[in-house]
């Protein structure tokens, strides 16, 4: 701690009880979060050990741990990536519209509505997805199969209920939209007025101004927001559990059929209530895999943001 007061150098800085108590609680809170994280990691690892060391035919499905968890990891990543691909451009467009195009009154209202999307419980999204969205997507999926069926993504047979990987990707996209757009909006509104006005003064149109001044400045923020959204999409449980028809035997790229790989979190929610013994350890081992994936995603996001910040003009 450096002191810039004009006190004589020999004298110690005066320490009041309030300072000490506040410093102590702040430090305690910081340590607590590490302890909790370590506790979760220790629990997951110690409870996974029986599944990790068991022989292949004791694991549910008889194929060993890797073939049990592999398709789950694939399903988790696939649904989250679809969600991100759909949500990010949409969220950036919403944020740009609210910050630069919308009349001020409309902008405030619209921002509020988008934030409201974040407050809807995921089980409600689940019901919306299964009863409203999924049946309405079936004709669209039929069209996709007829016209684009040669692409492995849209191979048939089409699900008759619409409870598919693409549907869950879209529902997850709606769920992560508010996070990504809120953070994007925040960084876009922080673009220095000097940058935008300089661009406009040089004869740039509004689109050119956004392209040259706003996007480069906000890039790292948008990526950070997307990674937060990705974290939510990876761990989403209830909506996936009730919407997705996860009955595939292994890894499949078909997005619009009844046979889809299940996601880790939804699989745990579905199988845990009637599981005992080693089956529970296996589920916890899959939870450990999810923990590692989210950790990697967060580290990747941090790395990307740090790398980008050198060029963003923020410094």
């Amino acid at each position: 701690m450096t002191s810039t007061t004009s006190a004589p150098p020999a004298q110690q800085p005066k320490s009041r009880p309030g300072d000490r108590i506040f410093a102590g609680t702040a430090k305690g809170a910081g340590i607590l979060i590490l302890v909790i994280l370590a506790g979760v990691a220790v629990f997951l690892i110690s409870e996974s050990v029986p599944a990790l060391t068991a022989s292949a035919d004791e694991i549910p499905g008889d194929g060993g741990l890797a073939s049990y968890i592999g398709p789950l990891i694939f399903g988790t990543l696939l649904s989250a990536v679809i969600a991100l691909l759909v949500a990010t451009p949409l969220a950036v467009a919403i944020a740009l519209f609210i910050t630069f195009y919308a009349p001020r009154k409309l902008a405030a209202g619209l921002g509020y509505v988008v934030d409201l999307l974040a407050a809807i419980p995921s089980i409600v999204y689940g019901f919306w997805g299964i009863f409203w969205l999924a049946p309405r997507l079936v004709p669209f999926y039929r069209w996709l199969e007829e016209n684009l069926g040669f692409i492995p993504f849209f191979a048939g047979p089409v699900s008759s209920t619409g409870r598919t990987m693409l549907t869950i990707g879209l529902v997850l996209a709606v769920m992560i939209l508010p996070i990504v757009s809120a953070i994007s909006r925040e960084v876009f509104s922080q673009v220095p007025t000097l940058h935008t006005e300089a661009a406009l003064a040089l004869g740039a149109t509004r689109w050119e101004m956004i392209k040259m001044a706003v996007i480069p400045y906000g890039k790292s923020g948008v990526i950070g927001g997307s990674m937060l959204g990705l974290g939510r999409a990876l761990g989403e449980t209830m909506a996936v559990a009730i919407i997705l028809s996860g009955s595939a035997a292994g890894i499949t790229w078909a997005l619009i059929s009844s046979a889809n790989p299940q996601t880790i979190a939804a699989n745990i929610a579905l199988q845990f209530p009637e599981s005992t013994g080693l089956a529970v350890n296996t589920l916890i081992a899959s939870g450990l895999a999810l923990f590692v994936i989210t950790l990697l995603v967060n580290m990747l996001a941090r790395w990307v943001v740090n790398r980008r910040s050198d060029f963003s003009g923020a410094n």
Binding site: S160, A241, I242, S247, A248, A249, S258, A259
Partner: peptide
């Protein structure tokens, strides 16, 4: 059996 429609 895999490949059918699965529901919770």
């Amino acid at each position: 059996v895999s490949g059918g429609e699965a529901a919770q």
